[in-house]
Computed example of a mutant assay.
Amino acid sequence: MSELSQSSPTKRVGFVPTFALSMVVVGVILTGAMGPLGGRIVQGALTATPHAPDWALLGALSPVIKIHLYAALAAVALGAALMVVRKGRAFHRAAGWTWVALVAAVAGSSIFITELNHGGWSLLHLFTGWTFLILPLAVIAARRRSVARHRRMMMGLFYGGFAINLLIAFIPGRTLWQAVFG
């Protein structure tokens, strides 16, 4: 027998260390991508003054950005609720389908948000493609009763997609930053 067939199975790394490592990697990538703007962003973060949302600023956004923003906020709130409730019950199924629709609306609307990159897509649109790939696969996994796969995919979308993009949305100088801290 070969040595490979006799080796013990590899131990899986838990969610928290994997998530922490992925956030560090994203931070390094963002720091490198921002280059010379990094100092201005750090300075903006240090001088932040939280206040009530600037509704006039949010009201002046284009309709597609409003759809994107409000669907994302609803998906974050509903997703957080889904993380803490008991799974497999009627509420989980109904709220899960609602969350899927909200995430699809967030990803679908993001295709039309191109103002930041002079009419073209940016690197953030890679999350859109990833969402359109993983979201239906996660639903299929649930329908096939592959609970572990469904859980990994949905948690990856929730924490990876929304946590990372929420951090990016609150970079000093961006609209959400201006609405809450600017």
Results as ranks from 00 to 15, higher is better:
residue 2 S to I: 05
residue 57 L to H: 07
residue 84 V to A: 09
residue 153 M to A: 11
residue 178 Q to A: 11
residue 168 I to C: 03
residue 37 L to F: 09
residue 26 V to Y: 12
residue 74 A to G: 11
residue 140 I to G: 08
residue 84 V to W: 04
residue 166 L to G: 15
residue 114 T to I: 13
residue 77 A to T: 13
residue 17 P to V: 01
residue 66 K to M: 11
residue 46 L to E: 08
residue 117 N to K: 13
residue 111 I to Q: 08
residue 44 G to N: 06
residue 147 V to W: 07
residue 124 L to F: 14
residue 5 S to R: 10
residue 111 I to P: 09
residue 169 A to I: 01
residue 18 T to Q: 11
residue 22 S to L: 15
residue 129 G to E: 02
residue 182 G to Q: 02
residue 154 M to Y: 00
residue 78 L to F: 04
residue 83 M to H: 08
residue 150 H to Y: 02
residue 170 F to L: 12
residue 144 R to H: 09
residue 123 L to C: 02
residue 139 V to D: 01
residue 60 A to W: 09
residue 133 L to D: 01
residue 170 F to P: 01
residue 134 I to G: 07
residue 69 L to N: 10
residue 144 R to Y: 04
residue 17 P to N: 01
residue 160 G to S: 08
residue 111 I to F: 14
residue 17 P to S: 01
residue 171 I to D: 00
residue 151 R to W: 04
residue 20 A to V: 15
residue 105 A to I: 04
residue 34 M to N: 12
residue 117 N to R: 14
residue 174 R to I: 00
residue 146 S to I: 02
residue 16 V to Y: 08
residue 20 A to C: 10
residue 35 G to P: 00
residue 116 L to S: 14
residue 22 S to W: 12
residue 33 A to H: 02
residue 141 A to V: 00
residue 43 Q to R: 12
residue 128 T to R: 03
residue 112 F to K: 12
residue 15 F to Y: 11
residue 131 T to P: 06
residue 20 A to L: 12
residue 39 G to N: 04
residue 114 T to S: 07
residue 181 F to C: 04
residue 175 T to N: 09
residue 110 S to F: 03
residue 97 W to A: 13
residue 117 N to F: 13
residue 53 P to M: 03
residue 124 L to A: 13
residue 34 M to A: 10
residue 77 A to K: 06
residue 45 A to E: 00
residue 18 T to I: 14
residue 62 S to C: 02
residue 55 W to V: 15
residue 121 W to I: 13
residue 181 F to V: 05
residue 49 T to W: 05
residue 92 H to N: 09
residue 166 L to Y: 08
residue 36 P to D: 15
residue 57 L to Q: 10
residue 151 R to S: 10
residue 138 A to D: 00
residue 154 M to G: 04
residue 162 F to W: 07
residue 179 A to L: 05
residue 153 M to W: 02
residue 14 G to F: 03
residue 157 L to T: 12
residue 152 R to I: 09
residue 64 V to N: 10
residue 94 A to I: 14
residue 11 K to M: 02
residue 68 H to F: 04
residue 114 T to A: 09
residue 85 V to M: 14
residue 73 L to C: 08
residue 16 V to T: 11
residue 67 I to L: 12
residue 47 T to K: 11
residue 96 G to E: 00
residue 94 A to Q: 13
residue 124 L to M: 12
residue 94 A to F: 11
residue 73 L to W: 13
residue 74 A to Y: 06
residue 24 V to N: 00
residue 178 Q to L: 11
residue 88 G to V: 03
residue 89 R to Y: 04
residue 125 H to R: 03
residue 90 A to K: 15
residue 59 G to C: 10
residue 4 L to Q: 09
residue 112 F to C: 05
residue 63 P to D: 07
residue 54 D to H: 07
residue 38 G to T: 14
residue 56 A to Y: 10
residue 60 A to T: 07
residue 163 A to M: 12
residue 151 R to K: 14
residue 100 V to M: 03
residue 89 R to L: 06
residue 64 V to F: 08
residue 125 H to T: 12
residue 60 A to R: 15
residue 51 H to P: 05
residue 71 A to F: 03
residue 23 M to P: 00
residue 50 P to A: 13
residue 40 R to P: 00
residue 4 L to A: 15
residue 41 I to G: 02
residue 135 L to D: 00
residue 60 A to Y: 12
residue 135 L to P: 03
residue 113 I to W: 04
residue 8 S to Q: 13
residue 45 A to C: 05
residue 20 A to D: 06
residue 3 E to S: 15
residue 124 L to C: 06
residue 104 A to T: 09
residue 167 L to H: 09
residue 138 A to L: 00
residue 65 I to G: 10
residue 84 V to L: 06
residue 157 L to M: 11
residue 22 S to M: 14
residue 11 K to E: 00
